[in-house]
Simulated assay, not measured.
Amino acid sequence: MKNSISDNQNIAIRKGNLNDLEAMQQIFRDTIEAICKKDYNAEQRKAWQSGVENEERWMNVIRDQYVLIAECEHQIAGFCTLDHSHYIDLLFVHKDYQQKGIASILYDEIEKEALLHHSEQLTAEVSKTARPFFEKVGFHVIQEQTVNIKGIALTNYKMAKDLIS
């Protein structure tokens, strides 16, 4: 499927696969470093980025979750994953493709998938940086929480969106 993100760029959305794993991990690291600076200090970003080292977790994402990849001019511009048809596990957009509507396009497709599975609610645990986006698409904060990664505390938010009113 194709969606337009600007006058001269098209975005293609496709299912992710094992061949995308390395690019997904790079986007994960780079986005945290470049985009989350205003919300998390260097120590927190480094701890968060260390999640890329958990090979088993990333293999489980590719194998067990619904993974969507956004491509722009043959480059992976972002990705989003849905676990158990109701939990948005990962949503990252490449630092060079921010503010172009890619997260919205990915989110819309993930919501459609959740609805296909008759999910009544979508949930996510989101960073301070991602919270405004999730609020914009209809999520509300259930709880602010502190997570510890390698002994470093990070604030994030449990959020939810009711799909069936």
Rank of each mutant, 00 (worst) to 15 (best):
K2R: 14
S4Y: 09
D7R: 12
I13L: 14
R14E: 07
R14G: 03
K15G: 09
D20F: 03
Q26D: 10
F28R: 11
T31L: 04
T31G: 04
E33L: 12
E33M: 11
E33A: 13
K38Y: 08
K38W: 02
Y40H: 08
N41R: 03
A42I: 09
E43T: 14
Q44Y: 05
Q44K: 03
R45F: 01
K46P: 00
A47W: 03
W48Q: 04
Q49K: 14
Q49C: 11
S50R: 01
V52L: 08
V52W: 06
V52I: 15
E53L: 14
N54L: 03
W58V: 09
M59F: 09
M59L: 15
N60S: 09
D64K: 10
Q65S: 11
Q65W: 12
Q65N: 14
V67C: 10
L68F: 08
A70H: 09
E73V: 03
E73D: 15
I76L: 02
A77N: 10
F79N: 05
C80N: 09
T81W: 09
L82M: 07
L82W: 08
H84D: 15
H86T: 10
Y87N: 12
I88A: 13
L91P: 12
K95E: 10
Q98G: 02
Q99D: 15
G101K: 09
I102C: 06
I102M: 07
S104H: 09
S104P: 00
L106A: 08
Y107C: 04
Y107G: 06
A114E: 07
A114L: 10
L116V: 10
H118E: 15
S119Q: 08
E120Q: 12
E120G: 12
Q121T: 15
L122R: 04
T123C: 13
E125S: 12
V126K: 08
K128P: 00
R131Y: 13
P132K: 06
F133D: 10
F134W: 09
K136P: 04
Q143D: 11
E144I: 00
E144P: 06
T146P: 05
I149D: 07
K150L: 07
I152F: 04
A153Y: 02
M159K: 01
M159S: 04
L163T: 08
S165K: 11
